[in-house]
């Protein structure tokens, strides 16, 4: 109710009805989203295979031989597995690097693409869009990586991911929303294109940077396939890869006698969601504040 551009008239009855409806709608929607995930959360604690919907985070602890609430045996197993510590760091490193490179390439590319008068800009944008539709396929891409010596290097994972046409074009559509008058004013003040980019474009695009950065981060965090194809040394696998490997291994060999497979898998799923819970609040700030783009009236 303290919002800057709050247009509500408290006496305006339809608005109140709307708020009520909206609240109920989101409560329902959140329930629909959360119940299945809560189910996984509960499964990560029951330590037995259940058929149907058991929604109580309570389970059998083989060490004490009792049913306990919030049975974390599967989580302990994941955290203490020596093979998971380094992959977690690799994941953080590749996620940060990919996000940084990705934002760099998308903003630079998008900034160039909004220069309508620049000779060749149309060709650039066709060349970019063309790659969304045509690609060389798995084997030729693999052979290129081999030829430039990137096999078994994390760059083979990070570089291709940092160039995402979808994100670049989205970025461009944000940049197009920046009033031309701002650029003109800066140019008259003697700003170089780089100066305009750093001083005007980037600060005005915080929401876009946050959302597209989030896209890059999440894609990099959950990446798995590139590691399968390009990485050989097991010291360079990321967390997602190890989690999947852990699943496979638990199914194929050395199946734990004390921890149910399904329980371990559920716990791993929960663990893989957690980092996002930390990243998200930092980004959300930028969606909430809004951007004061109306600073210069057109």
């Amino acid at each position: 109710m303290k919002k800057k551009f709050n247009l509500i008239n408290p006496q305006y009855a339809p608005r109140s009805w709307f708020v009520l409806f909206n609240t109920l709608f989101f409560v329902f929607l959140m329930a629909a989203m959360i119940i299945p995930i809560f189910k996984i959360f509960c499964d990560s604690m029951v330590n037995e295979t259940v058929y149907g919907l058991k929604l109580i985070p309570k389970g059998f602890d083989p060490n004490t031989g009792k049913e306990v609430w919030f049975n974390t045996i599967a989580y302990k197993r994941i955290v203490t597995d020596p093979g998971l510590y380094k992959p977690f760091l690799i994941s953080i490193y590749t996620t940060l690097m990919t996000t940084f490179l990705g934002l760099l390439i998308s903003t630079l590319g998008a900034y160039v693409l909004i220069q309508k008068d620049m000779p060749g800009v149309k060709i650039f944008s066709y060349m970019l869009l063309f790659t969304m539709i045509f690609n060389g396929g798995l084997i030729p891409t693999f052979l290129v990586m081999k030829n430039i010596g990137l096999l078994d290097s994390l760059w083979a994972v990070m570089l291709p991911m940092s160039m995402n046409v979808y994100n670049l074009v989205l970025m461009r559509s944000f940049f197009e929303g920046i009033p031309v008058s701002l650029f003109e004013a800066a140019e008259i003040d003697g700003c170089t294109p780089m100066g305009i980019f750093v001083k005007i474009v980037l600060p005005l695009s915080k929401a876009a940077l946050a959302s597209i950065g989030l896209f890059f981060a999440v894609a990099a965090w959950s990446e798995y396939f590139h590691y399968v194809i390009y990485i050989k040394s097991s010291s360079k696998y990321n967390f997602q890869y190890k989690l999947r490997d852990l699943f496979q291994d638990k199914q194929e060999a050395s199946e734990g006698t004390k921890i149910n497979v399904n329980t371990l898998k559920s716990a791993a799923v929960i663990v893989s969601i957690v980092p996002f819970m930390f990243i998200y609040p930092f980004c959300q700030k930028y969606f909430m504040t809004g951007v004061t783009m109306g600073a210069v009236k057109e």
Binding site: L138, I139, F142, L143, K146, V228, K232, S234, R244, Q248
Partner: peptide, 21 residues
């Protein structure tokens, strides 16, 4: 020894032949 992910093992095998290594 190279031990690829179980689920993608055969993709890895054919890729290694495609790379001639």
């Amino acid at each position: 020894i190279e031990k690829p992910d179980h689920a993608k093992y055969y993709e890895k095998v054919t890729l290694s032949f495609a790379s001639e290594e």
